[in-house]
Amino acid sequence: NQASVVANQLIPINTALTLVMMRSEVVTPVGIPAEDIPRLVSMQVNRAVPLGTTLMPDMVRGYA
């Protein structure tokens, strides 16, 4: 089972991601792999991401 990136807090739209906003968790469906967390830092979300939501590739500008 692969860990995915999950929002550690509410992340408002257009917010640049920081390490404290994300955690890794084994979830279904699988989202962005946890090993990509360092790559996600400073990328912006293109929608509001509620606490506990799995980050999907289409939620992060420039990721996919």
Rank of each mutant, 00 (worst) to 15 (best):
N1S: 15
N1Y: 13
N1Q: 14
N1K: 14
N1R: 06
Q2S: 07
Q2G: 14
Q2C: 04
Q2L: 15
Q2H: 10
Q2R: 10
A3E: 08
A3K: 15
A3P: 15
A3M: 15
A3I: 07
A3W: 11
S4I: 01
S4W: 02
S4G: 05
S4D: 00
S4R: 02
S4E: 00
V5Y: 01
V5W: 01
V5L: 04
V5I: 12
V6P: 01
V6Y: 02
V6G: 01
V6I: 15
V6Q: 04
A7H: 02
A7E: 02
A7Q: 02
N8W: 05
N8P: 02
N8I: 10
N8Y: 06
N8A: 12
N8S: 15
N8T: 15
N8H: 12
N8F: 06
Q9G: 08
Q9P: 01
L10G: 12
L10S: 15
L10P: 09
L10D: 12
L10A: 15
I11K: 00
I11H: 00
I11P: 01
I11F: 02
P12L: 07
P12F: 05
I13Y: 15
I13G: 08
I13L: 14
I13F: 15
I13N: 11
I13K: 14
I13P: 14
I13H: 11
N14P: 01
N14G: 15
N14Y: 13
N14L: 07
N14F: 06
N14W: 08
T15I: 05
T15N: 05
T15R: 06
T15D: 04
T15K: 12
T15A: 15
T15M: 07
A16Y: 12
A16E: 10
A16R: 07
A16F: 10
A16N: 10
A16I: 14
L17W: 01
L17F: 02
L17G: 00
L17R: 00
L17N: 00
T18A: 10
T18Y: 03
T18W: 03
T18I: 10
L19H: 14
L19Y: 13
L19R: 15
L19G: 11
L19E: 07
L19V: 06
V20W: 15
V20H: 10
V20M: 15
V20D: 14
M21H: 14
M21V: 04
M21A: 06
M21I: 03
M22N: 01
M22D: 01
R23V: 06
R23T: 06
R23A: 13
R23S: 13
R23D: 06
R23K: 08
S24W: 09
S24G: 14
S24C: 04
S24A: 12
S24F: 09
S24V: 10
E25V: 14
E25L: 06
E25A: 12
E25I: 12
E25T: 11
V26P: 06
V26F: 04
V27I: 11
V27D: 02
V27N: 04
V27Q: 06
T28I: 13
T28Q: 10
T28Y: 13
T28N: 12
T28A: 07
T28K: 15
T28R: 07
P29R: 06
P29S: 05
P29N: 05
P29M: 05
P29E: 07
P29G: 04
V30N: 10
V30C: 04
V30Q: 14
V30I: 07
V30M: 14
G31P: 00
G31N: 01
G31T: 02
G31S: 02
G31A: 04
I32V: 05
I32T: 02
I32Q: 01
I32N: 01
I32W: 02
I32A: 02
I32S: 00
P33Q: 06
P33T: 13
P33G: 08
P33S: 11
P33C: 04
A34H: 11
A34V: 15
A34D: 14
E35H: 15
E35C: 04
E35N: 13
E35G: 10
D36C: 04
D36H: 12
D36K: 05
D36F: 12
D36E: 15
D36T: 09
I37N: 00
I37L: 09
I37A: 10
P38Q: 11
P38D: 15
R39W: 10
R39I: 11
R39S: 09
R39D: 07
R39V: 12
L40M: 07
L40G: 01
L40E: 01
L40N: 01
L40A: 01
V41R: 06
V41F: 06
S42N: 10
S42A: 11
S42Y: 07
S42K: 10
S42W: 08
M43P: 00
M43W: 05
M43L: 09
Q44M: 13
Q44V: 12
Q44L: 12
Q44H: 13
Q44K: 07
V45F: 00
V45W: 00
V45P: 03
V45G: 01
V45N: 03
V45A: 06
N46V: 15
N46W: 06
N46P: 03
N46D: 12
N46S: 14
N46I: 15
R47M: 13
R47S: 15
R47T: 09
R47W: 09
R47L: 07
R47Q: 09
A48H: 08
A48N: 12
A48P: 07
A48C: 05
A48T: 13
A48G: 05
A48F: 14
A48D: 15
V49L: 10
V49W: 02
V49C: 04
V49Q: 02
V49T: 07
V49Y: 02
P50D: 13
P50S: 12
P50H: 13
P50V: 09
L51Y: 11
L51D: 10
G52K: 04
G52E: 05
G52T: 03
T53N: 08
T53V: 14
T53C: 03
T53A: 15
T53E: 14
T53G: 10
T54S: 05
T54N: 02
T54M: 04
T54P: 08
T54Y: 02
L55A: 00
L55H: 00
L55S: 00
L55I: 15
L55W: 01
M56S: 07
M56Q: 10
M56N: 10
P57H: 07
P57E: 08
P57A: 15
D58G: 11
D58K: 08
D58A: 13
D58P: 06
M59H: 13
M59R: 03
V60F: 05
V60N: 01
V60R: 00
R61Q: 13
R61F: 15
R61C: 04
R61H: 08
R61W: 10
G62H: 08
G62Y: 09
G62Q: 09
G62E: 11
Y63A: 04
Y63K: 03
Y63D: 04
Y63I: 05
Y63V: 05
Y63M: 08
A64D: 13
A64F: 04
